[in-house]
Design a protein around this nucleic acid. Structure first.
Lengths: 137, 137
DNA sequence: TTTAAATCCTAGTAAATCTATAGAATTAAT
DNA sequence: ATTAATTCTATAGATTTACTAGGATTTAAA
């Protein structure tokens, strides 16, 4: 399941993607438009900025805007930024790999192989969902 | 990501599936064999019993054994039993459906449609992983 | 140069959830 | 009866989640 943070991030990106080119959106505007608690959204937008999905203009008349094409922002990326690994166990993860502490011998984790199959399919599906694909309905 | 509970459940089922027909496994035996904390495993086995994956014999010489074919126990079922919904949001879930509280109008959740596509693919993949498929490697 | 309006930053907090552990009750075989 | 197992209930401690608070910083207009 997605965390609220990840869900809000997607909705915020969706909101930004729906605005006119060159429009700058204030946090409060996004919060109202997408029904997200404002102070919580502030943090999320900062995370999205650090992740180079959006950029911001500070000070009066400042706000946020997309710097990555809505066709190139995938669900997989947002999941990784806010909720971490897509794989079901760390030992089956590409980007968040960690060995299992409870598996006897390192590469004989009985679950690993099967979970890597799942990971590949889920990842492929998640990379197919972009902000653009969500916005046009 | 899977919880430890779900991971331990899979490993316990795997252990049971590897035993001879008619063999009854004590909790401590499974715990040692699959490297799972014994008291924690007790709870997990009770959950698996309530889910009708295993059954038990009480008292001396008692223990646990599979009552569902290892070909019919899927990752999807274990995920649902221990970690709940497979979908990324409750509004996109088949078995754990709940409407989003933060979506303006009920069926205009901007994320729902895309997440249902993911759910279908992930579910299909997870139904393809059985205890039997994990045991034979 | 002051002021207003925005982002940015660091904490903190209440609630829930997760990962176990403890101990007693129950059941069955010897 | 005794022993050895499951079963049940409660709870502790740690972590995570979902926010909230308050202020510092930045920018632009008046």
């Amino acid at each position: 399941m997605l965390s609220h943070k990840a869900k809000y991030a997607l909705k915020a990106l969706l909101y930004l993607a729906e605005q006119d080119e060159n429009h700058i959106s204030r946090t409060v505007e996004i919060a109202d438009g997408a029904n997200i608690p404002k102070k919580f959204l502030e943090q999320i937008l900062l995370d999205l900025k650090r992740g180079r999905f959006v950029s911001s203009k500070q000070g009066k008349f400042g706000g946020y805007y997309l710097i990555k094409s809505k066709n190139d922002i995938t669900l997989a990326e947002i999941h990784r930024l806010f909720d971490g690994a897509i794989a079901l166990l760390p030992c089956a993860s590409l980007n968040f790999y960690e060995p299992c502490s409870d598996c006897k011998t390192e590469d004989e984790c009985s679950l690993r192989h099967g979970l890597m199959l799942i990971r590949d399919k889920t990842l492929k599906a998640m990379e197919g969902i972009t902000i653009a694909s969500l916005v046009k309905k």
